[in-house]
Amino acid sequence: MMTRKIALSLGVLSLGALSLGMVALIAGTTATPAFAQSMSWQQAKQQGLIGEQPDGYLGIVGNATPDLRKIVSDINIKRKAAYTQQAQANGATVEQFAFTTGCNLIARTDPGEMYQTPSGAWKKRGTGAPERDPRCA
């Protein structure tokens, strides 16, 4: 009877240790990439560190750290390539297509995110309509 009780408690203990280990393992796999890589551009956007500009590109809202510069330029290079391709397909200039997309991207910002007004000032998106260029559709 006594030995059975000990064996039972040992089993419970080992089970507890196993589950603890698994929790640590799961936490480890999710936490490691966040530290190894810099944040994603979406995370920076959600935090209000970067925002949408009327010209169709991302901009840095406050302090321009090397990390933020890299995040923004990586995306902007890809955006410019996409605008260039679409501009050619639609008989427009890259600037025209980028500006049109800027109108749409500012319209799509979530409340709390930052965007640039036509005057060049950064503004936090509220629940209402954003302040956009009068040429926006």
Binding site: Q86, Q96, F99, T100, C103, R135, A137
Partner: peptide, 19 residues
């Protein structure tokens, strides 16, 4: 100066598709 409202309206649908 060469981005007119007319151009924005014309490219709007293609721009939304791209996004």
């Amino acid at each position: 100066i060469n981005v007119t409202q007319e151009v924005v309206y014309r490219l709007d649908k293609e721009s939304k598709n791209l996004i």
